[in-house]
C-alpha cells in the first residue's frame, strides 16, 4: 500500500488554515499521481493505492472543512467520494478474485469447477467496476476536480497570508514550486 507523503514544512503551530493548504495540496498530488495505469486489471495494486489516496484526501478535506468555502468544498467532496466509490467498485472484485485464486491453489481438481464458476462471476463484476471507474475518471477530468482542489488550496493559503498566519513568502509560493517539481512527470487524468 502506498505510504502517505510527508507534508513539507508542516508545523504544529501552523494555523489550521495554513495547514489545510499544505496538507490538501500534497494529498491532492498523491491522488492524481496514482491515476496512471489504474484501469489495468493485471496490476490490482494501482487501484488499491489510488483508492487509499482518495480516502486520505477525503479525510483531510473533512478534517479541515472549516478552512474552505462551504459550497466549493461540498462539491469537491461529492466528486472525491464518487471517485472513491468507483475505485471501491473495482477493488472489491479484485480482492475477491485474489482470495479465490489463493483457495484454488490450495485445493484439488475436484474443487476447481466451483472455483472457476465463481471466478467467472467476479470477473464480470471486475469488468463492470472498471467501466464505472473509467467513467468516474472521465468525470473528474471533465469537471476539473484537480483544478478545483488546487483552487481550495490556493484560497486557504491566500487567506492565511491575509490573516498574517503565513510566515514567509516561501510558504505562499509553496504550491507552485511543488507543482513544477514533483508533479512534472505525473500522468494527468
Amino acid at each position: 500500500m502506498a505510504k502517505s507523503r510527508e507534508i513539507p514544512n508542516l508545523e504544529a503551530t501552523d494555523s489550521l488554515r495554513l495547514a489545510a493548504a499544505k496538507v490538501v495540496e500534497v494529498r491532492t498530488r498523491e491522488l492524481f499521481a496514482e491515476a496512471h495505469g489504474v484501469l489495468d486489471v493485471s496490476d490490482i495494486e494501482r487501484v488499491h493505492d489510488m483508492r487509499v489516496a482518495s480516502r486520505r484526501l477525503r479525510a483531510v478535506l473533512e478534517i479541515f472543512a472549516s478552512c474552505f468555502p462551504r459550497a466549493e468544498l461540498r462539491a469537491v467532496l461529492t466528486d472525491v467520494k464518487a471517485l472513491a466509490d468507483a475505485l471501491g467498485a473495482r477493488r472489491d472484485p479484485d480482492v475477491q478474485i485474489a482470495g479465490l485464486r489463493g483457495f484454488s491453489q490450495a485445493v484439488g481438481r475436484a474443487e476447481q469447477p466451483g472455483v472457476e464458476h465463481l471466478l467467472e462471476r467476479f470477473a464480470m463484476q471486475q469488468a463492470d467496476g472498471n467501466g464505472r471507474l473509467e467513467a468516474a475518471l472521465e468525470h473528474a477530468d471533465a469537471s476539473d476536480l484537480r483544478g478545483r482542489l488546487e483552487a481550495l488550496v490556493d484560497g486557504a493559503r491566500r487567506q492565511a497570508a491575509a490573516e498574517g498566519e503565513s510566515e514567509s513568502e516561501e510558504e505562499l509560493r509553496g504550491a507552485d514550486e511543488g507543482a513544477d517539481g514533483a508533479l512534472g512527470d505525473e500522468a494527468a487524468l
Binding site: L10, E11, A12, T13, D14, S15, L16, R17, A19, A20, I63, A65, S66, C67, Q159, E163, E165
Partner: peptide
C-alpha cells in the same frame, strides 16, 4: 461533525 473549528487555531489544537 466538529462544528465551528476555528481556522486560525493552531494545527496541534485542532488535531
Amino acid at each position: 461533525q466538529i462544528k465551528g473549528l476555528d481556522p486560525s487555531a493552531s494545527l496541534a489544537d485542532g488535531l
